[in-house]
Simulated assay, not measured.
Amino acid sequence: MEALITIILSSIIVVISYSLFATISNQLNSLVKENGKELQYNLMNMSLLRDVNKAIDFIYNEPNLILYNYDDTIIEYHFLTKGIVRNTNVSIDTFKIGVEKQSLQIQKKRISLLSLKIIFLKSNINANYVLESSLSKTLNRKFFYEN
């Protein structure tokens, strides 16, 4: 009789500890997935902000954004519903962040506003980025018909 009670109590302890372990494991897995998505968003946001601030000129053809730098490097962004692709001369980066809607609004002659509606963690983020063409590029286009 004592052996039966010991076996029943030990099996209850094993079941409780297994349930607790499974619950903690599921919580940690969901936390890792959420942090991975946050990391993807932060990397994309930092890259896009840096590239937009360094760019001297841009071309926007939905869903593509092409940024030109002083050192003649070209950075292309492709905004897709499944993710964002960043293509440079050196590498191709893929961010698993869906873009539901994008638009470019011209604020002034040289300044435009790129609006992205990003699907992130089951919610929508409206991100705005200010794009500015350099004054020298604008003058060269107007008076010398250069690209």
Rank of each mutant, 00 (worst) to 15 (best):
L43A: 05
M46D: 07
S47I: 02
L48F: 09
L49T: 13
R50W: 01
R50T: 13
D51A: 14
V52C: 13
N53A: 09
N53L: 13
K54S: 13
I56E: 04
D57H: 14
F58H: 14
I59C: 07
I59S: 15
E62K: 10
P63Y: 03
P63A: 06
N64L: 09
N64R: 10
N64T: 12
N64P: 00
I66H: 07
L67T: 07
Y68G: 10
N69E: 09
Y70T: 09
Y70F: 13
Y70E: 13
D71Y: 03
D72W: 02
D72E: 11
T73R: 15
I74N: 05
I75Y: 13
E76L: 10
E76W: 00
Y77P: 11
H78W: 01
H78Q: 10
H78R: 05
F79A: 02
F79M: 07
T81N: 06
T81L: 07
T81C: 00
K82S: 09
G83K: 08
I84C: 07
I84T: 10
R86M: 06
N87S: 04
T88A: 04
N89K: 07
V90K: 15
V90G: 07
S91Y: 10
I92Q: 06
D93P: 01
D93L: 08
T94R: 06
T94G: 02
F95E: 04
F95D: 08
K96Q: 12
K96R: 08
V99R: 00
V99P: 01
E100I: 10
K101N: 11
Q102F: 01
S103R: 11
S103N: 13
S103Y: 01
L104R: 00
Q105I: 03
Q105V: 12
Q105T: 10
I106R: 15
I106A: 13
Q107V: 15
Q107K: 15
K108C: 09
K108M: 12
R110W: 04
I111W: 11
S112K: 12
L113S: 15
L113C: 10
L113T: 10
L113F: 14
L114I: 03
L114K: 02
L114R: 03
K117L: 12
K117D: 03
I118G: 05
I119M: 09
F120C: 08
L121T: 02
L121Y: 05
L121A: 07
K122S: 06
K122I: 00
I125H: 02
I125W: 03
I125D: 04
A127P: 01
A127K: 05
N128I: 03
Y129E: 04
V130M: 11
L131S: 06
L131Q: 06
E132T: 14
S133M: 06
S133W: 07
S134I: 09
S134Q: 12
S134R: 13
S134E: 10
